[in-house]
Design a protein around this nucleic acid. Structure first.
Ligand SMILES: [Zn+2]
Ligand SMILES: [Zn+2]
Ligand SMILES: [Zn+2]
Ligand SMILES: [Zn+2]
Lengths: 130, 130
DNA sequence: TAACAAAGTGTTATAATATAACATTTATTA
DNA sequence: TAATAAATGTTATATTATAACACTTTGTTA
């Protein structure tokens, strides 16, 4: 069994907020939300975010510069991420699809590059916005 | 036949620089490169970039906030983009793979979302850096 | 061709995102 | 307990991106 990660105080505060959020959160909106808890500077947020990403607890949605909690129990520690993003309401879902993940993880570029990691972002309209 | 796009002065200047570059360029590095041509403000760069992206002439590498020229003749006007990115030397190649593109374009999310567009970024080490 | 609309430009200012650097504190481990 | 590693607090600054407004050029159509 892998030891459950113990988070530092700031890491836990930041993670809690991201987990409670309905959608992706931006770094500065996290910052404004935690100032009552004594976190005052962007550095403190970005440091926590970096560690949480390393641990696979959260992911960065690159096209939005925003962060979501990982909801996938066996998420491969951020080596294989895929998201669906609604262009209207901004809803983001992490996609957990074994076939897709396998297909992409074994994809090899002609030019001899062996991939370690990928990130895939799908865009469209969610059920509600369609 | 679709009419070949005619670019405005600023759009052409920005595209030329991106096409000549060996790797992805950042907006402000483009700006510094064109100040001799009378372009002085970020707005002018970002406006040109936006249009060039719309036209499918360039793509944004989201994980790097940088821009590359499209080298793919039948690139589906930015609806289906895939890139390989070297984590060491920062080399970026656009991936043109009909199977991959077909596979992803027809991928449908369980939650009823129909995708219009995707962007995929692979990370690893290129031949040289391996 | 004159009138209008649409697209592009130039400019100043500012917002939003992210990192550098350094001093200090807390936790881990040898 | 001494040494090391990880995390924190803080100030300053770098980088990326957009808002707003006045003006010009280009395209369209009456
Ligand atoms: Zn995940
Ligand atoms: Zn939606
Ligand atoms: Zn392309
Ligand atoms: Zn390389």
């Amino acid at each position: 069994m892998t030891q459950a990660q113990i988070l530092s105080r700031n890491q836990q505060i930041v993670l809690d907020i991201i987990e409670k959020a309905k959608g992706p959160l931006k770094a500065y909106s996290i910052l404004f939300n935690v100032q009552k808890k004594g976190i005052n500077a962007p550095q403190q947020i970005y440091r926590a975010l970096d560690k949480l990403i390393e641990m696979g607890k959260i992911h960065k949605i690159e096209s939005k510069n925003a962060f979501v909690a990982c909801r996938i129990s066996d998420c491969e520690i951020s080596n294989a991420t895929a998201f669906s993003i609604c262009e209207s309401c901004e809803k983001v879902d992490e996609i957990s699809d074994a076939k897709l993940s396998k297909y992409l993880s074994s994809f090899n570029h002609k030019k001899g590059m062996k991939f370690k990691r990928f990130n895939l972002e799908f865009f469209g309209l969610c059920k509600k916005c369609k």
